[in-house]
């Protein structure tokens, strides 16, 4: 599923609209409440900040490998993909429709979390999105997340991702609650040196998340690879019930017991039995997957 096209086309560098165009079957996408409807944030003018006509998220329906899906894509370049009132409500509405229609959902994450200038509305929107996601999954509908955007997937966005039925990540994808700068600002540079990019990747990057079972599929930073990954993720089960959550509880407890005193990602990978753990960040996708497939902690649909 990682076979990159001969000419790689970066997912990370693409815009949200560009990613959707490459992800879905050509010409299949219809946007709901698009920019011409001018449903932008009413709160940014207060801070003398410009609005964007789609409020940084595109929602609509389309087809993925012939299969009808609902899709949402966050634009990480507009305010870091941050979630405000309108942005959040668009995703909530899409998820509620998915529940009614029994239609799978693909979310293209690219977000720093709550939008500061409308923090209360954004925080509450995330809670509504989480509830809508869980209620949708309870109906057997898949909600899958793709993680490979510029802004990463941080803050409340990472909690939404944690509620998805399956996740696809690239090496560039970062998944974490507190971002490096937030940890450094609050706890000091000794706790986290946000300029140490290698540390960022080892702690919250795609390879680490894949190795510990935090995500289900690892793909190249390539639009075709993400499309193939999304198709594969839509084959994973959506079920969310007592058994799934009991299995997730056991899985997360086992992780803490196994790795809870590890000081660094490389130490976690060593305990997994990964040979030469220090070289993991340098491995290309196929070499990484060869090792990871046999050594990683799988999530086994326990999410």
């Amino acid at each position: 599923m990682t076979s990159p096209s001969p000419t790689r086309h970066s997912w990370y560098e693409e815009s949200a609209r560009g990613r959707l165009a490459h992800l879905l079957d050509p010409g299949s996408f219809t946007e709901f409440l698009g920019p011409e409807r001018r449903e932008f944030s009413p709160h940014l003018g207060l801070f003398n900040l410009p609005h964007q006509l789609d409020d940084g998220i595109i929602v609509g329906n389309g087809k993925l490998d012939g299969r009808p899906v609902l899709a949402a894509a966050q634009e990480g370049r507009f305010m870091g993909g941050a979630i405000g009132e309108v942005h959040g409500a668009k995703l909530t509405g899409l998820l509620r429709a998915a529940r009614q229609m029994k239609r799978d959902v693909v979310i293209l994450f690219d977000t720093g979390g709550v939008r500061l200038q409308e923090a209360n509305a954004g925080e509450l929107a995330i809670s509504e999105i989480i509830r809508a996601t869980l209620e949708t999954r309870a109906e057997g509908v898949r909600v899958i997340g793709l993680l490979g955007g510029r802004a990463g997937c941080y803050g409340g966005g990472s909690l939404i991702a944690g509620c998805c039925s399956a996740l696809v990540i690239s090496e560039q994808g970062r998944l974490s609650v507190s971002g490096p700068e937030v940890i450094e600002t609050n706890k000091g540079v000794e706790e986290f040196d946000s300029r140490d990019r290698a540390l960022v990747w080892r702690t919250m990057g795609g390879k680490h998340r894949y190795l510990i079972g935090g995500v289900d599929l690892f793909v190249d930073d390539d639009v075709a690879a993400f499309r193939a990954g999304a198709v594969a993720a839509l084959e994973r089960p959506a079920a969310l019930n007592q058994a799934v959550l009991a299995a997730e509880q056991a899985r997360l407890e086992r992780r803490l017991a196994r790795f809870g005193d590890a000081a660094d990602g490389a130490e976690v990978w060593a305990r997994l039995g990964v040979p030469h753990p220090a070289t993991v960040p340098d491995l290309d996708t196929s070499a990484f997957l060869t090792i990871a497939t046999s050594k990683r902690e799988g999530a086994d649909a326990a999410r």
Binding site: R17, E36, L53, R77, F78
Partner: peptide, 30 residues
């Protein structure tokens, strides 16, 4: 629609509906 609202960038939405010899441009800038 082209572009995004980011530092050093802009979004431009184009719609039809004006007289054929006329173009109206509305700009919001910080």
């Amino acid at each position: 629609l082209v572009g995004v609202v980011a530092s050093g960038n802009l979004e431009v939405l184009l719609e039809r509906g004006e007289a054929p010899d006329r173009c109206v441009i509305d700009i919001a800038t910080p």
